[in-house]
Design a protein around this nucleic acid. Sequence first.
RNA 1: GUGCGUGUAGCUCAGUGGAUAGAGUACUUCACUCCGAAUGAAGGGGCCGUGGGUUCAAUUCCCACCACGCACACCA
Length: 575
Amino acid sequence: MTDFKELIANELYDESLGLEIDEIKGMIEIPADESMGDFAFPCFRLAKALRKAPQQIAADIAASAGGNKAFAKVENVNAYVNFFIDRAYFESEVINEVRTKGASYGKSEVGAGKKVIVEYSSPNIAKPFHIGHIRSTVIGNALYKLYDACGYDTFRINYLGDYGTQFGKMIVAYRKWGSEDELKEEPIKALLGYYTRFHKEAENDPSLEDQARETFAKLEAGSPEETELWKKFRELSLAEFNRVYGMLGIEFDSYNGESFYSDKMPRFIQELKDKKLLVESQGAQIVDLEEYDLGAAMITKSDGSSLYVTRDIAAAVYRKENYNFYKCIYVVASQQNLHFKQWKKVLELMGYAWEEDCVHVPFGLVSLSDGDDIKTMSTREGQVVFLEDVLNTAVSKTADIMREKNVQGVNVDEVSKEVGIGAVIFQELSNNRIKDYVFSWDKVLNFDGETGPYVQYTHARASSVLRNADEADLAAIAEGNINASYLASDSAYALCKLIYRLPEIVIEAADKYEPSMVTRHLVDIAQAFNKFYHDEHILVDDEEERRAKLSLVAVSKTVIANCLALLGISAPERM
RNA sequence: GUGCGUGUAGCUCAGUGGAUAGAGUACUUCACUCCGAAUGAAGGGGCCGUGGGUUCAAUUCCCACCACGCACACCA
């Protein structure tokens, strides 16, 4: 496909401007208002070099440019040179591109040969999967798909929180109050019950804490009884998590969690000692990061056991040594900003220059509204909304709507899952990831406006139009046999322009670790399609016109499906 | 207190060193004998937190302040 910015840059290039083609290309903007053209070149910056008023420069350039047949018009407004592309030319380029690339339209090879690890979701074993966990899970999955689409060799890690003193507590509590039967019945609920009971009872009986520490020490030492229990807790929890991952359509390449690295830490503690980075402070071993304004990174506790930072160091080195990543992305809440800064600084001080390739991708907090109060979620206090409940409610609401609308030829059970779950995922990916938000049932169950169902509906609508077309038309547009001059309308052209921009949006979204850029662009495309659909009748009598319009519908459908796929959402044909 | 982040329409949020700051939602209307109304169109609604600075040009960059959130050693 023609790179239109490059085309314009070539047209503008002149030695007297003192700018390279690439520099000119970088200066080209897309005007705020369509009436000002499709691309614009601002001349403010040239004023100094050329010693002329920017308005005059723009006027001069506009007067001499425009020879290429790709331009319908080149005009000057204020200090801008505005380019109007020939619509039919542009549209046939775009439509042809999408038609031939199909499901791979939007993808690129910018990351070919480079390995990218995405660590995401990473729930704590034995704790319920609540609405707060959806962020890392869904954002991480979208990032994986974005990097995959950019040609990177990707590897997905679920860094399970499957280790630590909490398991000492869990084992103590299970032995005191638990039973095999209730554990089998509803594992996470049972485990959570033990955990909360432990904390309640420990308030009156501090010796429980000591027992927990002892038990964890045994586990860490490899004691068979404790290990067996821990394994059971882990397996049962994982089975429940997998049910939710299944609903969300999410998979991982590795489930190596914290426990996997439990025996890999001594090497680094020794290394920190050798490199004179370790300092004793109040009985604990720390790396003093005061001079970097990062406080102290604790490496071992006063009882000698290890901590988060230490495990993360072991994990990072393991990954570097085994996967030799180009980039390792950690999709973890912004609450852990300090931890990641400390951890990166320690790696840097240890001499691991590749720590620069480790990227913390933070996201904002999800809280709950409790009347006028806003509370953070707390499993201990039972202040939680379970993700599975949210997904199920969204699905059943979708099923209700579908039955009400009585759409023919649809399997309500299947499609309501695609739409209901898609709605939840879409909602999660529609804002900048750094924003905090308060969970609201009303919002997550709203299917009007800029939502997943809106986009999916648009896709189903485009599918429906294509079903109504006859075979000969479909065969003709599959061959690219169309006359784009029938797509001269503003709405058809606006839609093509948005489709044209998708590949660069995907690259930028991956680059900025911001899936919402794709979500936003997808909404724009859906809006543009719906406007086109309303403004114009597609299945008209004139064959050439009908085929031109149908091919734009077909291309739109492909692009919407591709975008949804990047977000991890399916694109139903009917709903 | 220190560090990081956020502050744009009633609400939820996009956005950019430049041309008149945009969506959705809510509210008031209009459009299904017509390709799917989970749709489209029209209307009102804004000192872009406050005050300085840099710049030809600042809602955007820098500084200070205010409000809110998060973090700040034996949890992860």
